[in-house]
């Protein structure tokens, strides 16, 4: 508490000092400057001074002649933010502040599109978030229209538009019913960003198998395994065959190869053979006749 009071007292003294000393001139600053554009600062008085432009995004220090206009070329101040301007002369210090805003023209987008792989036919399964930047990596805080487009191998192209708030816009899209790659594009003016997403088959919906003798054993094989939209489950998907017979059981996890899973199992008369993938259970057959 005491330190805060002392701090305040010191701040008052130091703030009052320039007012007492700055008898010879004043600073004329622009209110706001667009990032990357040219601007100038006018001072009055005479003699030499040092001009400090200080912000978290940039720092500039220049020797100036009081009474002259200090010019800043395009690109000199590129970083948006709040800047202090301090003119320190031989006998006076003058202060001011101004803001640098992002350029109006969008230059780049940060496009967060998720997920890069998802199941088909999901409502609002895809999300896109866009942060809009100018050419100097400043966040464009002015309201801007962003268009999102999802197009791919199948299904109608989905288009959405959204306005940015505080530099960010977002949308959600549905995944199509057919598997394959889709392109997700975000566009603001001439700036665009593309993401590729993989639509993969959903949960299995159709799983049937058959069995036939294979020498001393039994060859079991599934039909092509598909999801509810008719997409074939990808190779490598694990299919579990379970054979139950009197006093025993055999199990084998087989990956799909060329759309089907096949393996050999022991041949026991009256055995029940079932098939499953994940938590989806397919048909069951009794060796000697399908049930």
């Amino acid at each position: 508490m005491r330190s805060r009071f002392t701090f305040l007292l010191g701040a008052l003294v130091i703030t009052a000092m320039p007012l007492a000393l700055a008898q010879t001139g004043s600073l004329h600053l622009p209110g706001t400057v667009e990032a990357g554009s040219a601007f100038s600062i006018q001072s009055t008085g005479n003699g030499n001074a040092v001009l400090y432009i200080v912000g978290l995004g940039q720092v500039v220090k220049r020797k100036v002649q009081l009474g002259q206009t200090v010019s800043f070329a395009p690109g000199d101040l590129r970083s948006a933010g709040h800047y202090l301007a301090v003119l320190v002369g031989d006998s006076s210090t003058e202060n001011g502040a101004f803001d640098v805003t992002a350029a109006h023209q969008p230059g780049a987008l940060s496009f967060l599109a998720k997920p890069s792989r998802l199941a088909v036919d999901l409502h609002d399964g895809i999300s896109g978030v866009v942060y809009v930047f100018d050419a100097f990596q400043n966040l464009v805080l002015a309201t801007t229209q962003v268009s999102f487009q999802l197009s791919g191998v199948a299904g109608a192209t989905q288009t959405r538009t959204a306005l940015t708030h505080n530099g960010v816009a977002w949308t959600k899209m549905d995944s199509a019913a057919k598997e394959g790659s889709v392109q997700f594009v975000a566009r603001v003016g001439d700036a665009a960003s593309t993401r590729v997403m993989q639509l993969v088959p959903g949960n299995p919906c159709h799983l049937r198998m058959s069995a036939r003798p294979s020498g001393q054993r039994l060859a079991v094989e599934t039909e092509p395994v598909r999801d509810c939209n008719g997409n074939a489950l990808p190779d490598g998907t694990i299919v579990t065959f379970t054979e139950r017979y009197k006093g025993g059981e055999s199990t084998v996890d087989v990956p799909l190869k060329r759309g089907v899973a096949r393996t050999d199992m022991p041949a026991y008369g009256g055995a029940k053979i079932s098939v499953a993938t994940g938590v989806f259970v397919g048909n069951e057959i009794r060796w000697g006749g399908e049930r």
Binding site: G247, G248, E249, S250, T251, V252, D253, V254, T263, P266
Partner: peptide, 9 residues
């Protein structure tokens, strides 16, 4: 590899 679990009791 694919491994069969046979004769489970």
């Amino acid at each position: 590899p694919v491994i069969e679990i046979e004769d489970q009791h």
